[in-house]
């Protein structure tokens, strides 16, 4: 096997794994009971899924100019996803869109 074939296969595996994680994230966003819980699904599996997809794309394209763009997408994904999730989570908390019976403790309310 040539290095190119190995990279192609690794890329394919990354693409499929990333797609599956993104699917799980989407299911989580649909199924979780309230907005803050949904944001968990929108950050972790989603970010890792996108990173894996980018890795897969990088392994298949293998050209320097594409790598730069892919790197940028990854960096901005890591930087922006938590911020967006925090804004939505905070808005949900402040407007009371929260399943209180599913909350064990709320130390923010005791403030």
């Amino acid at each position: 096997m040539t290095p190119g074939v190995v990279a192609d296969w690794l890329g394919a595996v990354s693409l499929v794994a990333g797609a599956l994680l993104n699917l799980a994230a989407a299911i989580g966003v649909l199924r979780f009971p309230d907005a803050p819980s949904r944001m968990h699904a929108a950050t972790k599996p989603q970010v890792l899924g996108v990173l894996l997809l980018l890795l897969g794309v990088a392994l298949r394209l293998r050209s320097p100019s594409d790598l730069g763009m892919i790197l940028l997408v990854g960096v901005f994904q890591l930087a922006t996803a938590p911020v967006a999730a925090q804004m939505i989570g905070r808005a949900a908390y402040r407007s009371g869109r929260l399943e209180r019976q599913l909350l064990e403790t709320d130390e923010l309310a005791e403030r």
Binding site: A24, H40, A41, K44, P45, T105, E107, A109
Partner: peptide, 23 residues
Amino acid sequence: QASLHVARIAVQPGYVPRSAIVA
């Protein structure tokens, strides 16, 4: 770890996760 954990409870049938807010 986090991604696999959240992905697992997302697809686990009939499971409703409880949560908490801590300071």
